[in-house]
Amino acid sequence: MSKQLTDVEDVLEGAVKKHGLSVVPLLQEIQEHFRYLPEEVLRMLSRKTGIPLIDIYHAATFYNSLSLTPRARHQISVCAGTTCHIRGGGKLIEEIFQLLGIRPGEITSDGEFMLETVNCLGCCAFAPAMVVDGKYYGNLNPGEVREILNALRKKAVS
């Protein structure tokens, strides 16, 4: 535990040195390190810099790419851009709910999958699209989504 705490201290120290009291770059740096913004670390940041916790919380909840929740093992991001919406992106989200029981922003109880929607993946020619663990999939229908996720689930079991 003490080793971990020193690690956190180091990360905070480095971040403050680099960004001063600019709250957003500080949080980006912390998130880069921990993959999300752990509450304890934010409290430490507040004590260290004197930035009120409420301001840190404000920034952390204002920006979409900052997250207060830990990540799951498999990250599913379904595009919720306009083109994907009119080309059936909603059905993909519905399919994932049927399959995994999670809505956007939720994690499966076993911590395996997290579903998010993203405002635009920028590959509208291949709408509807989603990204699973960094891999892009385009021109999807619900059946294909099921295949992709089932393959991942099988891997997890075996």
């Binding site: 993959r35 956007p104 993203v118 960094g134």
Partner: peptide, 17 residues
Amino acid sequence: MPINLIGVEPLYKELNH
């Protein structure tokens, strides 16, 4: 809670390493 990702976190994570 939509997030504005293009590379999406895993890729972004990759990018940093």
